[in-house]
Every structure is written in structure tokens, then in C-alpha cells.
């Protein structure tokens, strides 16, 4: 009995911290999501039941638009980053010249803060003064309105994301490749397998578990897309690049509609949990 009390005594500060920093904000935001609270005008909170959730699903086209964009964004960037990361890892796991130099070079984009990356690309692609546009113009390529044409801007964001986060996949896969047992490769070679066969029947299956983890981590992170939208397009033109996180930020910190923003956040959380579960189950089946 006394031993239990001592154990609990040691656990208590940690539990208290967890309650204060994680559980309380969650409960508080869940409570708020059932209220209408226009905090900017100091209006009182009014309990509205499920009205916020009803509005999200049935009266808010902007929510669906941002969800659609975010889902497309996640699907495209994660699959391209995985493919490129795998390719780079495979190439750089071989003994090629300047291997170490390239390894460091490919890691640099990931080391930069996302908001700095966003502003850097915004300047590079500036239609009047951007160096990329100037080079293209000098080469005789017609002006492309990268940041102002709704047909291009989503892909500009995706390209920047791929540039920045492919190294994450590369790094994880390279580490995994280097830890694979060499005996399997020796055996495959003795059996006369080609390089392609070795990759598909030895390397790829062995990499799948780490790929599941990397895809999951990257998908969750990409779903939270904010900095690139904030720094490069501001969600525009129109709402063509408005991600779900950016929309929630706008509702919460531009309109200060805190009840609605909390409801949106809970919907967001549920979507991420469902996606993570789905990905885990689906990819585990593949393994």
C-alpha cells in the first residue's frame, strides 16, 4: 500500500503536467466548439450545441474547398517525395563519386526553417523581380504567373514542399538501406539475380516497414500545411491554396470566431486520426 502511494507520488507531477498541458486544452477546446464566441468584440459565449459542426459540414463551402486542396496536396507530395527519396537513397547508397557531398547537399533544404523557405521561394518566383522569372524571360520562356494564376499556385506549393521534404524520406530510407543485412544481397547475387530483381525482391520488401512509418509521419506533417501557404500565397489566389490549417488560423485569429475555430480543429483532429489509422492498417496489410 505504502509502495503504491510512493509510486503515485512520483507519477503525480508528470500526470499533473500532462493534464495541464494536454488534457485540459483538449477538453477546453471541445467545450468551446459547442459555443458561439466572437472574442474580438468581447461578446459573451453562447452555447449553441452542434450548430458549429452542422455549419462546417452543411453550410461552409470554404471548409470543403480547403479539405479537398489539403487531401490532394498530401496525396501528391507524399507519393512524389517517397518515390524521389527512394531513388536518391538507392543512388547514394551505391559507391559513387562525391557521395558524401551529395548526401549533405540533399539534406540542406530540410534544415531550413519552413517559413524562411516560404519567403525565399516567394522572392525567387516574384513576377516582377524574381530571379527564376528573369532567367526564364531571358531564355525566351513566356511569363508564367506562378504565384497569381490559380491553375499553377497549388503546384508551386507542392513543388516547394517536395524540394524541402524529399530529404526527409531520403534520409530515413538511406539509413534503412545501410542497415539491411549484407548476407541477403550476397545470397541473391550467388543465385544470379539482376540489380532490378535484387531491388524489387530484396531491398523493397525489407524497406516497407520503414516506408510505412515515413509515409505516416510525412502525411501527418503535410496535412498540417501552414507555413508555405502563409509565406508564399496567403491561401490565394482566391482560396485555391487555402489549406485546412490555414483556414482554421484565419477563422481563429483573423475573425476571432473561437467557437467555430475550435470545432474546425476537432474536425481536423478526427480527420488526421482517421487518416493515420487508415494508412497504418492499409500499409501493414501490404507488408
Amino acid at each position: 500500500m505504502r509502495r503504491d502511494a510512493i509510486k503515485f507520488g512520483f507519477l503525480f507531477p508528470g500526470l499533473l503536467y500532462l493534464m495541464a498541458m494536454a488534457v485540459f486544452p483538449l477538453i477546453w477546446s471541445l467545450t468551446l466548439s459547442f459555443h458561439r464566441w466572437k472574442a474580438a468584440t468581447a461578446a459573451p459565449r453562447v452555447f449553441v450545441g452542434f450548430e458549429n459542426f452542422w455549419n462546417i459540414f452543411f453550410r461552409d463551402p470554404r471548409f470543403w474547398n480547403s479539405l479537398r486542396f489539403t487531401a490532394l496536396y498530401v496525396a501528391l507530395v507524399v507519393s512524389i517525395e517517397l518515390t524521389l527519396g527512394l531513388l536518391l537513397a538507392y543512388i547514394l547508397s551505391e559507391r559513387i563519386r562525391f557521395r558524401n557531398f551529395f548526401r549533405v547537399l540533399f539534406l540542406l533544404p530540410m534544415a531550413a526553417p519552413p517559413i524562411a523557405v516560404a519567403f525565399m521561394w516567394r522572392m525567387l518566383l516574384n513576377p516582377d523581380a524574381g530571379i527564376i522569372v528573369k532567367i526564364l524571360n531571358a531564355l525566351g520562356v513566356n511569363m508564367v504567373r506562378w504565384l497569381t494564376d490559380a491553375r499553377f499556385t497549388p503546384f508551386v506549393l507542392m513543388a516547394v514542399d517536395i524540394w524541402e521534404w524529399t530529404p526527409f524520406m531520403f534520409l530515413g530510407l538511406l539509413a534503412a538501406m545501410q542497415s539491411l543485412p549484407i548476407s541477403l544481397y550476397d545470397a541473391a547475387q550467388v543465385d544470379g539475380a539482376s540489380r532490378g530483381q535484387i531491388f524489387w525482391f530484396v531491398t523493397f520488401p525489407l524497406l516497407l516497414p520503414i516506408m510505412v512509418t515515413l509515409v505516416l509521419l510525412r502525411a501527418i506533417d503535410a496535412f498540417k500545411l501552414f507555413e508555405l501557404v502563409f509565406g508564399i500565397t496567403g491561401g490565394g489566389p482566391g482560396t485555391s491554396t487555402e489549406s485546412l490549417s490555414y483556414y482554421i488560423y484565419t477563422v481563429g485569429f483573423q475573425y476571432f470566431d473561437l467557437g467555430y475555430a475550435c470545432a474546425l480543429s476537432w474536425v481536423f483532429l478526427c480527420i488526421v486520426l482517421i487518416m493515420a489509422n487508415f494508412l497504418l492498417q492499409r500499409l501493414r496489410k501490404e507488408i
Binding site: 516574384n126 513576377p127 516582377d128 511569363m143 504567373r145 504565384l147 497569381t148 490565394g236 489566389p237
Partner: peptide, 10 residues
Amino acid sequence: TKFAPPGLLS
């Protein structure tokens, strides 16, 4: 917008 510089929307 048709009579503005190409970078207008930025």
C-alpha cells in the same frame, strides 16, 4: 487586370 503589369496579383 488586363491592362496591369504581369505581377499585379502579387
